[in-house]
């Protein structure tokens, strides 16, 4: 399954970078979201996939006795998801504001803050 997901990650990165290279501000934002999906999935896949139990320790059972999923990449990705949401939300509001003030959606025409 890692091999399949490797190509999915590549596809996500390609789509994200293609959108980041567009002149339209909106497409740039969509690209930003795809980029964070790509990065999260990259960490998840590269750390190794397992269909084992989630990393939740039982009551009295010795944790080492059962095989569980690796908690470390999960903690990393969880942080990344939240941070990327913060970035996306700020970027969205900034784009909204910029569009309200400057009145264009074309990055090439966003040459100054006053129009």
């Amino acid at each position: 399954m890692e091999i399949v997901l490797a190509f999915v990650v590549g596809g996500l990165y390609a789509a994200a970078i293609y959108l980041l290279l567009r002149r339209s501000l909106i497409k740039l934002l969509i690209g930003l979201v795809l980029l964070s999906h790509a990065a999260n999935l990259l960490i998840f896949t590269a750390a190794g996939l397992t269909r084992a139990q989630p990393p939740i320790v039982g009551d009295k059972a010795a944790p080492l006795a059962t095989v569980v999923a690796d908690p470390l990449p999960q903690a990393l990705i969880l942080t990344a998801i939240v941070i990327s949401f913060g970035v996306t939300a700020f970027a969205l509001v900034l784009a909204y504001r910029a569009h309200k003030i400057v009145g264009v959606d074309d990055l090439d025409r966003l040459t100054s803050t006053d129009t």
């Binding site: 890692e2 091999i3 997901l5 490797a6 190509f7 990650v9 590549g10 596809g11 996500l12 990165y13 390609a14 789509a15 994200a16 970078i17 293609y18 290279l21 790509a38 990259l42 896949t45 590269a46 190794g48 690796d70 908690p71 470390l72």
Partner: peptide, 26 residues
Amino acid sequence: IAALAGGLMTLFVLLAVGVQFQPSIS
């Protein structure tokens, strides 16, 4: 350009999957 970048990332993941890591702190 995007396809080149995507291809590189796919390659990374494929190479990373085969790597045996040091004992993890997990």
